[in-house]
Amino acid sequence: MNALVKEPTVTWTDVGAVTDVPRRGARRVPSPRGDIAVFRTGDGQVFALIDACPHKGGPLSQGIVHGSTVTCPLHGRVIDLATGEATGVDRGTGCAPVVPLEVRDGRLFLGLVGG
């Protein structure tokens, strides 16, 4: 949510209900900066990342979600959903930008900047 502090013109946009995202799964939201992946973990946590793996841009929304990580469908990097960073042996090799996400009354709001 640092972005919120730095960028005063954030608009929070309702993109759907938390339950629209399958548990241990993800949904995509197209945006002018490419797809955004919205994840929901087995424990009901939600996260949003730019839908591009730091390795070669694989669509993270299509990976298998386990715990609070997702395994990229292309070459199997394991990405931390909270930080967007590659984990394990790939730690430090890059990161998928985090998109500000808030839950209000069961709805998902993405933090976006004015267009």
Partner: peptide, 16 residues
């Protein structure tokens, strides 16, 4: 069906 549809098509702005 949810697998093949984006969650939302309404975004006009870019992620902050």
């Amino acid at each position: 069906a949810e697998e093949f549809n984006p969650l939302s098509r309404r975004l006009e702005f870019a992620p902050a």
